[in-house]
Structures are given as structure tokens and as C-alpha cells.
């Protein structure tokens, strides 16, 4: 029973981290203008914008992110949406610094990154960012 305070401390510390993680997960943030060429993701830029989603087979949130993004852009043919397997594209993963999946990059029509979301994006924020593209 002398370890009960230790147990309490672990639960408090991990809960603080967990709440912070949940609040930041999926937030879309503005990023520096990093350029990604079409050859790097083996696809084509959209006429208005391109969305690159880095996924892995061991990522439970990736499918949710994919169906959300596909649903939000379904009537916008001028936006290209490309899902990239992170494990098969490690060179690009290292260059653009993907640390977890899903990570979604929003590129302008010239292929410059303007925003990114780590984790499944939140619908309201996604709609706002896509309408601003």
C-alpha cells in the first residue's frame, strides 16, 4: 500500500499528457513552404490544391482520416487527394519529417506545403482549410 501515491502520480502525469495529446491530435497547422514535387509522390498536383495523406497499414486512424477527407472533397475535382504508404516512401517520409500516421499535408497548386495535420483531422477545421485553399 505504500506505493499508492506512486500509482496516483503515474495516473495524473499520463492523464495530463493524454489530454494534451487529444487536444493537439488532428489539429491543422500552418507550415513553412516546403516544396514536394509530383515525382516524389508519383501523382499529379490538383488544379487548385493537393492533399497528401501519409498512412501505414498499422494505423487505426488512417482509414477514418481517409474517409473523412474523401467525403469533404467529394465534389471538388480541382483538389487532388493522394494517400501515400509511409513505409514504401521512406525517403519522402524522412525529407518532410513524418513522425506518425496519419499525417496530412496540404499543398498549394504549385506543390508548396501550406498546412499539415498530425492525426485524423477534425471535420470543421478541415472544411475551413479546404475552402481557404
Amino acid at each position: 500500500m505504500r506505493t499508492l501515491p506512486l500509482l496516483g502520480l503515474i495516473l495524473v502525469l499520463t492523464s495530463v499528457f493524454g489530454i494534451y495529446y487529444r487536444s493537439k491530435n488532428g489539429l491543422i497547422r500552418k507550415k513553412r513552404r516546403l516544396h514536394i514535387s509530383q515525382a516524389e509522390f508519383a501523382g499529379s498536383y490538383g488544379r487548385r490544391a493537393t492533399i497528401l495523406q501519409f498512412s501505414t497499414t498499422f494505423c487505426s486512424q488512417c482509414r477514418a482520416a481517409k474517409s473523412l477527407i474523401a467525403d469533404v472533397i467529394k465534389n471538388q475535382s480541382d483538389i487532388a487527394y493522394v494517400e501515400i504508404d509511409a513505409e514504401s516512401n521512406l525517403e519522402l517520409v524522412r525529407r518532410v519529417d513524418i513522425r506518425s500516421t496519419p499525417t496530412t499535408l496540404f499543398l498549394d497548386r504549385a506543390g508548396f506545403e501550406i498546412a499539415r495535420a498530425t492525426g485524423a483531422p477534425k471535420r470543421n477545421q478541415l472544411i475551413k482549410v479546404i475552402s481557404a485553399l
Binding site: 509522390f41 508519383a42 501523382g43 474523401a70 483538389i79 487532388a80 487527394y81 493522394v82 494517400e83 514504401s88
Partner: peptide
């Protein structure tokens, strides 16, 4: 428009 750049390696 969704395109995928995925590998088809077998997974469990």
C-alpha cells in the same frame, strides 16, 4: 479525386 500510392505487401 483520390489516388493511392500504397504497397500491396501481405499483412496480418
Amino acid at each position: 479525386m483520390l489516388t493511392t500510392n500504397q504497397s500491396n505487401k501481405p499483412v496480418v
